[in-house]
Design a protein around this nucleic acid. Structure first.
Lengths: 249, 249
DNA sequence: TCTGATTATGCGTGTTTTAGCATGTTTTAA
DNA sequence: TTAAAACATGCTAAAACACGCATAATCAGA
């Protein structure tokens, strides 16, 4: 086996799996690990791969993670905000949760929309109230240090007394098998109460959160009226949800 | 599994959920918690994440209005904040209004103070909750676009149900003849309810608001336990108040 | 085809990195 | 105050590594 041939094989493996282990290549091609290591070293010097302890990984795989997490997925979130705005009509009563997507939405709402917003997030409330035609009502309660939203029994109580047209919730985990899920018990309780208080339910999720599950169940998929992601509704990534009884945006 | 691959996975989880727990990663990838901790430590040293007890959080997950905006008379307000802090004891229950002075106070509270804060201001709430030993409870209600505090009947109702050790209120007008006054009917109602809910009342006012009157009366001077300004208690400017039954700070 | 030079490969040796475990300490929350 | 969780630290075994060297493969020119 020629050297170039071998390195082409390694390159193919990396393009295929985003990584290779020296031991794997050694076993597959029946060559010594030393040779593989020498190959990888050489390829790394040529800038073709990134050498790491144990093997090598694709250059394109590793690179994007270091650079830009400050604005990670922000473009996607603004895109989502634009879609949500289409759901909002004058004189609607809306209930929202927290999260960065919701803040983006609050910023992007057109100034001429006349509506009432209930929210458990002080940050969202403060953004919303900058729009002069909105009435903003905070559902008060104990403020969670980690998630910056109001939680606890008082929130649940207040939610029991209201009925809104639309509830906007961010999803933490979302999958066909488990429905909408979350990792925090308190959050689940609040989200459930929010869903009970709403006639229609819209779930907001960036595509990467789809098909992931957390420990606690929030609601079934059939309770959800709208699923909003940054993807086009006919994107193959959404195919598991296309036949379900929810509108994809 | 390669180390870099693992760290990329962790990075991805953090970008998705703003945080990770060491135990979760350990379970998901079937590796020891030690390894996860070592990874997080390393990533924290590289500045990729913020390490916290139990896991790590996204570097960008710090709420947005830290921009040290030039607040009017900020030095005086910080001075006042320092004086108020002397009134605060462990296990106190405090009720606060809004205003820039209160925000300065919220920032300046020592981290080791263990207390419960009720507040009608979402901004104050968000500042307070950054101190880990504080329990912060928002009194929710309609958010006023101008003053950024919660107002309305719902606030009054909730205030009727609580009793706190100390109420911190900013004054809009303050004089010997008229007592504490304000210009907005709604604000007066809320302030009165706050005073009713408190055993002791501390009024915060920068000196230039003293000896001015607004149209509506909030309370008499004899209901006030503490008057806090940036001046020394024996300042001649405060002489009209020195013989009254309130403590000057 | 042969020969010498060059390069590539495998192996032995010793070193470094890694991951899990045991131990004792600190932090956290009840 | 106390018990559990999270942590730091040191240690160990195994894996991955670098290096030198011997041998094997490759190639150019006669």
């Amino acid at each position: 086996m020629l050297k170039d041939e071998r390195q082409a094989f390694i390159m193919r493996q990396i393009n295929l799996h985003n990584k290779v282990l020296s031991t794997d290549i050694s076993a597959m091609l029946n060559i010594s690990e030393d040779t593989v290591r020498r190959d990888l070293k050489e390829m790394a010097e040529d800038g073709k791969v990134l050498k790491v302890h144990g093997g090598a990984i694709s250059r394109s795989f590793h690179y994007p993670f270091n650079a830009d997490n400050a604005v990670y997925a922000q473009a996607a979130k603004q895109q989502i905000a634009q879609k949500i705005i289409k759901l909002l009509k004058n004189d609607m009563v809306v209930l929202t949760g927290g999260g960065t997507t919701m803040i983006e939405l609050a910023k992007s709402i057109p100034d001429n929309l006349r509506a009432t917003f209930f929210t458990i997030s002080p940050l969202v409330a403060l953004e919303l109230v900058e729009h002069r035609n909105l009435t903003v009502i905070s559902i008060g309660g104990q403020l969670s240090p980690s998630s910056h939203v109001h939680m606890g029994a008082s929130v649940i109580n207040q939610l029991a007394d209201i009925k809104v047209d639309l509830c906007l919730l961010g999803a933490n985990g979302f999958s066909v098998q488990d429905g909408m899920t979350d990792s925090d018990w308190e959050v689940v309780q609040v989200k459930r109460a929010m869903i009970r208080a709403a006639k229609k339910l819209a779930i907001i999720s960036i595509a990467e959160k789809l098909n992931s599950s957390q420990r606690m169940k929030v609601c079934d998929l059939n309770q959800i009226n709208y699923l909003i992601t940054e993807l086009a509704p006919d994107n193959h990534f959404l195919s598991p949800y296309q036949q379900l009884d929810m509108e994809l945006l």
